[in-house]
């Protein structure tokens, strides 16, 4: 296994080194990423400066939703976010270079970059999570401990899978690749808020098409023993791993089709 992964270890290692070479610009990028994380949270803060509950969640619970969703998204962004630049890889011939190497193209794309500066936003989300968790009145059980430990991982997997889905679609769209942002970044944005504020069609969209609700809101309902909007089965909060598997299944099939389309039509 270790030997199988050696190429990727070397690739990721060299990417990381190249980023930290210029220490000053790396630090400023890192701070920029922290600032973006704070900006996202400022929105939640301002809303709760005016109201006590939003979508049946109080500030502490809403902060928990925000934090879990953002830990997941910022981790996925760190690991796979560059897949969103597929058109750039196509234009600069990087994808052709990947095709000429004896490794799977998707694995090469994912390991071709690790944006360490995005750790800034991860850090902000983790801090908010650490502060928000004790502020919530949770009746801890072993199952809930497992759930809170698992949720950031499944959230990362869901958003990473969404990025790969987006990259797959971009094989066709290229120039119009921003279409996919509505679902990747839009999904991430929506996932930071209690889904109960959305209309039913939107809730269905962000649960079953773009499974953003699984990354934070639904697990938080379970953690806090809240019923959620009418018609929401309680067990849905445990289904995040299934959502992650489903997203990745679609992502891998889509990627295969996208790559076929690319080698079929050429650039």
């Amino acid at each position: 296994m270790g030997e199988r992964l050696r190429p990727y270890r070397v690739l990721v290692g060299s990417r990381m080194r190249s980023q930290t070479t210029y220490r000053r610009s790396f630090v400023s990028d890192l701070l920029g990423s922290v600032a973006i994380g704070l900006m996202e949270f400022a929105e939640v803060y301002v809303v709760f400066a005016n109201v006590d509950v939003l979508g049946d969640l109080d500030f502490a619970a809403a902060a928990l939703v925000f934090a879990l969703a953002n830990v997941g998204f910022s981790m996925a962004d760190l690991l796979v976010g560059h897949a969103d630049n597929l058109p750039v890889y196509l234009r600069e011939g990087t994808l052709d270079a990947f095709l000429l190497r004896p490794l799977p193209v998707l694995a090469q794309l994912i390991t071709s970059d690790v944006s360490l500066r995005r750790l800034g936003r991860v850090a902000v989300s983790v801090v908010i999570l650490a502060v928000a968790l004790p502020l919530n009145d949770i009746e801890w059980t072993a199952a809930k401990v497992a759930l809170i430990a698992l949720t950031p991982l499944t959230a990362t997997a869901v958003f990473a899978g969404l990025f790969v889905c987006a990259a797959a679609v971009q094989f066709w769209l290229v120039e119009g690749s921003e279409f996919t942002s509505a679902f990747t970044y839009g999904g991430a944005y929506a996932s930071g808020y209690p889904a109960s504020i959305f209309s039913l069609p939107m809730r269905l969209l962000f649960t079953f098409v773009v499974p953003a609700a699984f990354t934070a809101y639904l697990p938080v309902l379970v953690l806090l023993d809240l019923p959620g909007p009418p018609g929401t089965p309680h067990w849905l909060g445990w289904c995040a791993p299934l959502a992650a598997v489903a997203v990745w299944a679609v992502a891998l099939l889509g990627w295969r089709a996208g790559l076929r389309h690319y080698t079929g039509t050429g650039s």
Binding site: F179, S181, A182, G186, Y189, A190, Y193, I197, M202
Partner: peptide
């Protein structure tokens, strides 16, 4: 399109 989808989310908020 993306502006519109974000508009929908923001309006909901």
């Amino acid at each position: 399109f993306t502006n519109t989808v974000f508009g929908l989310i923001k309006a909901s908020i």
